[in-house]
């Protein structure tokens, strides 16, 4: 158990170390010459208008995020079912139950569709 998850930490640690090391080497080599117009946000060479982080973005992205959470959690429920499906003693019952589950999922999708949550324009 430990040996199957320890490598994840090792990999994350090693790659982070590599990345920081490359950035450090680069910091020794690169020039550092900041001035006002170089540091302004890129806006096709014009003076930047307003601030970007005041939240002017479509609410639609938020709706997509909510839908994602619902659907992703529900697809995770399918995994245990998918693993035991070949077990003959319960497979028919499991299949019927999952038929109902996916039916409920489909109703949710049709509702979101009908409400226009999936229409972008």
């Amino acid at each position: 158990m430990l040996l199957s998850y320890l490598p994840v930490l090792m990999m994350i640690g090693f790659v982070t170390f590599l990345g920081v090391a490359v950035l450090f080497v680069s910091s020794l080599l690169r020039p550092q010459n900041p001035y006002g117009s170089k540091l302004s946000p890129w806006e096709c060479g014009m003076e930047p208008v307003g601030d970007a982080d005041i939240g002017h973005f479509r609410v639609h992205f938020f709706i997509i995020a909510i839908l994602f959470i619902i659907f992703d959690v529900e697809t995770l429920f399918l995994f245990p079912w998918a693993v035991i499906l070949a077990d003959k003693s319960i497979s028919t019952l499991a299949f019927i139950e999952m038929f109902i589950f996916i039916g409920i999922l489909a109703v949710g999708l049709i509702y979101a569709w009908g409400k226009g949550a999936l229409d972008w324009l």
């Binding site: 490359v22 080497v25 680069s26 910091s27 080599l29 690169r30 020039p31 900041p34 540091l39």
Partner: peptide, 13 residues
């Protein structure tokens, strides 16, 4: 890439 300046915009987090 190693020799390029690392520009951080002044209004960035």
């Amino acid at each position: 890439m190693l020799f390029k300046e690392d520009v951080i915009p002044d209004r960035a987090d």
